[in-house]
Nucleic acid binder design. Sequence first.
DNA 1: CGGCGGAATTGACAATATTCAATGCGCTGT
DNA 2: ACAGCGCATTGAATATTGTCAATTCCGCCG
Lengths: 234, 234
Amino acid sequence: MKRVEVGEAWTGVADCRHCVVRNAVLFAGLTEEDFSHLHRPIDQLSYSAGARIYDAGDPAQTLFTIRSGLVKLTQYLPDGTARIVRLLRKTDLFGLEAMIDEEYPHTATALRDTEVCRLPVDVVRTLSHNNSRLFNELMARWHKAVGTADRWITEFSTGSARDRVARLLLWLSEKEEDERCELFSREDLGALLGLTTETASRTMAELKRKGFISEPRPNQFLCDTPNLRRLVGL
Amino acid sequence: MKRVEVGEAWTGVADCRHCVVRNAVLFAGLTEEDFSHLHRPIDQLSYSAGARIYDAGDPAQTLFTIRSGLVKLTQYLPDGTARIVRLLRKTDLFGLEAMIDEEYPHTATALRDTEVCRLPVDVVRTLSHNNSRLFNELMARWHKAVGTADRWITEFSTGSARDRVARLLLWLSEKEEDERCELFSREDLGALLGLTTETASRTMAELKRKGFISEPRPNQFLCDTPNLRRLVGL
DNA sequence: CGGCGGAATTGACAATATTCAATGCGCTGT
DNA sequence: ACAGCGCATTGAATATTGTCAATTCCGCCG
C-alpha cells in the first residue's frame, strides 16, 4: 500500500476564547457574551496534504478559518481546465460564499497538512446581525478576497512566464519573515499562473540558473528579492 | 478644436424613491423611513465616453451605482502595464472598496456615455448598521465582485487568445437579450484579456472569417453563440 | 473635396510557450 | 538493495503570441 493516508479528521471542539490565532481571525471582535450565545460548538478539523476540503458544487454550509497549513481554491472550466484562483494560509477565511450561495464555487484542497475551524454559516449570520465588529470584520474579509483576486489577475495572469513566476515568488516571500518560501508541485505552480507544468518547471530552472533563487533544501527557495523586484520593474 | 468634450457633469439630485432602476440597485431594500434619514442628497453625475471617474490612489469617499452606460476598472502594474479587471454596467455597484480602504485600488473610466449615482460612503455605512436588508445587499455585492473576479481569472486569463475572446463574447451576449454585443476598442479588448492589441485584432478577424461572429454595423457584433460555445468546450 | 489623425488591420519576423516524448531522481514498499 | 512509481526536468519540433513597421480605413475639419 503506497497510498499515503489522505483525509479529513475531527480533532476536537474549538475553544475560540483561548484560540492561539484569536486576535487575527474572524471572531476577533467577539465578546464573552457573544460566545455564550454559541450553542452549537465550533469544530476543529485537520486535513492531510492533498485532501479535498470541499468540491465545487457541494452544498455550502460552513465557513473555514485556517489555523495552520495551506489551502488552494481551484475553479474549473467546462473543458476541464483547472485554474487555481486563491492560496490561503494561517488566519485566512474561506468558503465565505456560503453566506450567500447554496453551493461552493470552488474546490478547496489542502496543499500541506492543514488545520481549520469550521464555522456554521447560520452561526456567523446570526452573530453578524447583532455584532457590528463581526459585521465589519466580515466586510473586511470580502474586501480582502476581492483585492487578492484582482492581484491574481494583474500579477499572476499578465506578462511573460518569467514575470509571473517572479511576482509569485515575491508575493510568497512577502508573507514570510525571511525571504524563504516553500513551494508546491510544478503542476500547481502552472495551474496558478496559467502556464503548463513544463513551462513552470523550465522557468524555475532558469531563475535558479541566473541566481534569482536558490534551493537550500528540496522545494524550499531563497529569493534574491531585490533582483527579483528589479526583474518585474520595481 | 477636434477634441471631443470629455468629462464629468452634475445632472441633479437623485430621487431614489422613484428611481427607474430602484429595485435592482443597492438601495432596493430601503423603506420610506430609511430615506427620511438621508440628510445628504444623492448626486447624479454623468460622464462622457472616455472620462475618468476616479484614479487608483484617489481618496475613496463614495460608492457608485450605474444608471446607464459602461465602466471599466483598470489596475496598473509597477512596470506600467494596465489590466482591465472588471466591466460594469446598469445597476452594478463599484467603488465598494471605499467601505474599507482610504484609496481606490483601481482607475474607473467610462467606456461609453455613462450616468451614475454617487453614494457617500458614510451614508451607506450608517444605513447599513440599522438596516439588515441593505446589509445583506452589500454582502451580495461583495460576493458578486469576487465571483466576477474569479471568472476573469479562469475565463479571461486562461487558454489561447481565441478561447479568451470567444468566452468574452459569450459573456457579453449573455447579458443582452439578443446575441448582439457592442464592443470597445481593440486596445481595451487586449487589456481585458491579457493580450496585445494586435493579437486581439487578429483574433477578432479570424472569428469573423470563420463565421463565429458577424458585424452588421461597426463595432456591433452578432454572435453565433452555439458554435462559440462549442469552440470553448461547452 | 482633400487632407489629417487616430485606430484597426496586416505582414514579416522574432520571441515565447506548448506539445509530446524521453530521461532522471527520490521515495516507498518488499 | 532494488524495482516501481510519481513527479520534475530536459530536448526537439511546432504552434502561438509578441514586436515593429507598414498600410488601410474612417470620421472630422477646414
